[in-house]
Design a protein around this nucleic acid. Structure first.
Length: 99
DNA sequence: ATATTGACATTTA
DNA sequence: ATAAATGCCAATA
């Protein structure tokens, strides 16, 4: 369980509701710069609902890509009280989760 | 084992 | 300001 993937999943599942994070921050917290690998790990997530992958967004505040046929990032985040304007997160910097 | 791709980020035009 | 190019590391083929 030392793969980057497992770490990412673990951290992602630990994100509190109402908070968000970015691929960059996750990677930095894991001690790597593999921002892309973080996304790769999340897309391979085994438990989509358990792991709040929708709380992980891009560093510029955009939602980024998402491949869930049923859910969309904006809807899920709005459900958690996060405002989204024009595919960007409102006050996303203030809602960033500090590990 | 090597090559290509990707749920990104940063820099340059 | 937006758009394209380049770089990053892991995962997948």
């Amino acid at each position: 369980m030392n793969n980057l993937r497992n770490k990412v999943l673990k951290l992602t599942s630990g994100i509190p509701k109402g908070n968000i994070t970015t691929y960059k921050i996750l990677a930095e917290k894991l001690g790597t710069k593999a921002y892309r690998a973080v996304g790769t790990a999340l897309k391979n997530n085994p438990t989509p609902i358990i792991i709040p992958c929708h709380r992980v967004v891009k560093s510029n505040g955009e939602l980024g890509e998402f491949s869930s046929k049923v859910y969309k990032k904006e809807d899920l985040l709005r459900e958690e009280g996060i405002e989204i304007k024009n595919n960007r997160i409102v006050d996303f910097k203030e809602k960033l989760y500090r590990f």
